[in-house]
Every structure is written in structure tokens, then in C-alpha cells.
Design a protein around this nucleic acid. Structure first.
Lengths: 141, 141
DNA sequence: TGCGGCCTACGACATTTGTAGTAGGAAGCG
DNA sequence: CGCTTCCTACTACAAATGTCGTAGGCCGCA
């Protein structure tokens, strides 16, 4: 069965992220990428993380040439969704609204993002077409 | 210095959440709340978590009567924001848009929530929050 | 053909988290 | 009073995480 995308230790996620950001890579390349980002960590440490990631099923490796090349087996979106979901669960019993509102309010979205969000909302608006009562919205209930 | 709202172990967050949800409480009350939610855990375990939470500065306690009463020192929103922020950072280098879009797309928002989101967007649209005028870019796609 | 590098497999160890047991004090009560 | 019942302070301990060091293999080159 597929991995539990949600529960992945920070350090390993960091490594996985370098694969998403920079594509498949060897241990050494991953290490270099981390170093560039100011993350100082030993070669074997990176190796450990990649190994663990593979055991968990988040990456796969294939030996081409002299060293193994690691590549993601799950998408960033998958992990993202999974973590968001846990966050919802852990904080708001699964209600998404508070997080959405908070994100839109607190984090800076530039006009383009807002446009896109607006478009997305429009499509949603058409779908769940039941209730149209514009009852004065309470924040939480 | 205020606590690092972001990095709080799951089990402790769970306990803190019972305080947000049900208000200040004693160790035993917290334990009962957890039990009701199906979370079986020993009394002393709860005590441990509350103690750790207090050391971290997430809750405070005051002895009124025979047992200490614990109450949150940080709001749910604070923690929420903090965790969202780390999530953004860990997955998208801080860009909020992907998460927002994903949330709105994947999680089910009921009409009311959408309405509210729409209203929020409208306000944003009118006064685009620019703290700094670093780059003017009103591009439409 | 032996040396200096790079690579992986293992093992090691300190910390942090999750979970709980025990000891000893205060309290109610028969 | 003496017993039962709570409560808190400590201590304990296994599992998960974060970080490496070492040993031994393969490879190109002086």
C-alpha cells in the first residue's frame, strides 16, 4: 500500500523536496543542493535520509552508472494534501474553511493568485448549487 | 520569548486542543475529554503532556482548589497560522497560493464558506495589500 | 599494481516523543 | 485516627528522529 504521505519527519521531507525542486539526483547531489540552501549536513546523513525515504516508499532508486539515483515516488501535491488534511484534523476537526480564510487573510497573495482563486471559486459556485440563502455568515459555529 | 508555535508534537497538540475546545481543565478532565474522543491514554501521560506544554509556554496552570487548572496561553489561530507557515515553507518555499488553491479544490467547503471566502476576496481585491511597493504587476492571464 | 577517491551498508548515539509506573502529600470519611 | 482516593513530582523506557563514523568495495590513474 502507498505510503502515509502525511507523517514524514521534517528532515526527510527536506530531502524529498530537493528532489522535487531539482529533479532526480544522487546522494552527493542532494547534499550539495542542501548545502547551497545553507543546510549543512554530512554525506552519510543524507544517505540515511534517502534510505529511510525509500523504505517508507517515498522515493525509488536505480543504479545507473556509479551511484544510485533517487527520484520521488510521490508528488509534492500528494504530500501537501495529506499534510493539510492532518492539519485540518488536528486543529479544526476537519473543517477546511478556517484554514482557507486564514491563509487568504494572513499570507500575501499577489493579484494573479487572487484572480486564479476567484476563477476557481466561480466554478465551485456552480457545482454545489443547492442552498442559496445568504444567511449572515457566522464565523464559526 | 514566545513559544515556537509551529513545532509542537502531535500528542501535545491533541491535549492543547481539548483546552481550546472545552475550555480550561484539570488533568483528569482533559483525560476524560480524550477518552470520550476515543483516545485512550493514562492519567499520568496526560499530566506529562500538560507539564511539557507548560514548559514550552503553551499553557499556564493555576492551583485553584485541589488540583491545577490548565488553560491555553496561545490561541488556536496562532498555532494554526504558525503551522501553516511552516507547511508553506517546507513544501513551497513560502508561496501560499498552491496551498490555498489546493484546499479550495480538494476539501469540501459548503456554500456559506464559499460566500465568506468570496467576501474576503472582494475586500482584498479592492485594497490589494501591498506592504511594500516592490514590484507593480497587475497582469492578467 | 597499489593509492586516493567516491559509493553503499551498517552500526552507533544523543534527543525528542509517546506512554506510563511509583512515591509521597493532602483530603474526605467512617 | 486510619484507609481510600486524588493529585503532583519524578523516574523510566521504548520508539522515532537527527547526525555521523567506519569498514569494505569498485575505479581510474601514476
Amino acid at each position: 500500500m502507498p505510503p502515509q504521505e502525511a507523517d514524514l519527519p521534517t528532515a526527510e521531507l527536506e530531502v524529498l523536496k530537493t528532489l522535487w525542486d531539482g529533479g532526480p539526483a544522487t546522494v552527493r547531489q542532494v547534499m550539495n543542493r542542501l548545502h547551497r540552501r545553507g543546510r549543512k549536513v554530512a554525506y552519510t546523513t543524507v544517505l540515511t535520509f534517502l534510505t529511510r525515504l525509500e523504505q517508507r516508499g517515498f522515493v525509488k532508486s536505480d543504479k545507473s552508472g556509479l551511484a544510485y539515483i533517487y527520484r520521488p515516488k510521490v508528488t509534492r501535491e500528494k504530500v501537501s494534501k495529506s499534510r493539510l488534511r492532518s492539519l485540518l484534523e488536528e486543529l479544526y476537526d476537519g473543517a477546511a474553511a478556517p484554514l482557507v480564510l486564514q491563509l487568504v487573510r494572513d499570507e500575501k497573495l499577489d493579484p494573479e493568485d487572487i484572480d486564479e482563486l476567484q476563477r476557481l471559486i466561480n466554478t465551485l459556485d456552480l457545482k454545489p448549487r443547492r442552498s442559496k440563502k445568504k444567511k449572515a455568515g457566522r464565523s464559526r459555529s
